[in-house]
């Protein structure tokens, strides 16, 4: 992450000489830091430590907290089917949302990168869901996926009418099989514009000469895509993969609003963050909720490490030599 920018400012022991540094300059630096540091300590550092401590306790906000060691962690993994279900749902979200986002975003970006007219117009439209309110968007999708009168179901009813076949839409948000895909579609629709814009930027940096050379060698457009474009944008893909994965693990508003806060039917759409929210703010299980948040963090961290390790096999970095 832009480590080269850190070079000029690293203090070296040799530079510690007094020359040019009036006394008081150092205290001045602390004054600049003070407002940020106060907030950082109170709202970030203390909460992180507090959360770690809370995760080892049982506390309902009313009676004094009680130290129970790792019991919260043991409990969510062994005696809490809802947590396991939420964990599984979240995995489902991640493995569907991330690939769909990447493929859709790259496809549109490739189409926009062909030197056609109207790029600005298309970009305006495809990016529009990114800036819109997620709560409003989830409400719209809830209505679109209404079984009887939603516009998505209407397509199914219409197909049934036209073909005379017994085609009926699933009861999307009330069906344990179809509720999650509805949440996935909302999320992909909402965030695809972001992936597209980042890919467009990535495509801009692919040298045109590579394509010229490939054409001379008689490479088909498909071969050019596989052998030039995809390897050249693989750093962008890696970046998007990581942040979309982290985002999918933290999914909350989309399933929450679409299922009116229930995570239903029967927990089928409940994400880990929804589980944390319910444990903390519905059942006042502050310790259990904190433990779940740390499990989420550990999982995100582990997945990021794995991806970072795997990237050596598929991410292509320009070495700048030869």
């Amino acid at each position: 992450m832009a480590t080269q920018a850190e070079q000029p400012s690293l203090p070296t022991v040799a530079k510690r000489s007094r020359g040019g540094w009036r006394p008081g300059r150092q205290n001045e630096a602390y004054l600049f830091l003070l407002p940020s540091l106060l907030g950082f300590l109170l709202f970030i550092v203390i909460p992180v430590l507090g959360s770690l401590a809370l995760s080892l306790m049982r506390w309902n906000l009313l009676t004094p907290p009680q130290f129970i060691g790792l019991n919260n962690y043991i409990e969510i993994f062994t005696r809490d089917p809802l947590f396991i279900q939420a964990f599984g749902n979240t995995l489902f979200y991640a493995v569907t949302i991330v690939p769909l986002q990447l493929v859709a975003g790259l496809t549109v970006a490739l189409a926009l990168n062909q030197g056609i007219r109207g790029v600005k117009f298309y970009r305006l439209i495809y990016f529009m869901p990114v800036v819109s309110s997620v709560v409003a968007a989830a409400l719209i999708f809830q209505w679109m996926f209404n079984r009887d009168f939603g516009i998505v179901s209407a397509v199914f009813w219409w197909l049934g009418d036209v073909t005379g076949l017994p085609i009926a839409p699933p009861d999307w948000l009330n069906s344990s099989a179809w509720a999650k895909p509805a949440v996935v579609l909302l999320t992909v629709w909402k965030n695809m514009g972001f992936t597209m814009v980042i890919y467009l930027a990535g495509l801009q940096s692919v040298p045109e000469e590579l394509y010229d050379a490939a054409k001379v060698d008689g490479a088909s457009p498909w071969q050019q895509l596989l052998n030039i474009t995809l390897p050249m944008v693989s750093p962008t893909t890696f970046f998007l993969l990581i942040i979309q994965m982290i985002g999918a693990f933290q999914l909350f508003s989309e399933p929450f609003v679409m299922t009116r806060g229930t995570g239903g039917p029967a927990g089928a759409t409940m994400s880990i963050v929804m589980y944390i929210y319910q444990a903390a703010f519905k059942y006042s299980q502050m310790g259990k909720a904190s433990a779940s948040a740390w499990v989420l963090f550990a999982f995100i961290f582990a997945c990021t490490l794995v991806q970072n390790w795997l990237q050596r096999r598929w991410v292509h970095y320009e070495t700048g030599e030869g």
Binding site: F43, I44, P47, V48, S51, I276, I300, F301
Partner: peptide, 17 residues
């Protein structure tokens, strides 16, 4: 270091604060 820690971890203590 705190950049990696998701909001959900600090959310509950912040609520208490």
């Amino acid at each position: 270091a705190t950049l990696m820690i998701p909001f959900q971890v600090t959310m509950i203590p912040n609520f208490i604060i």
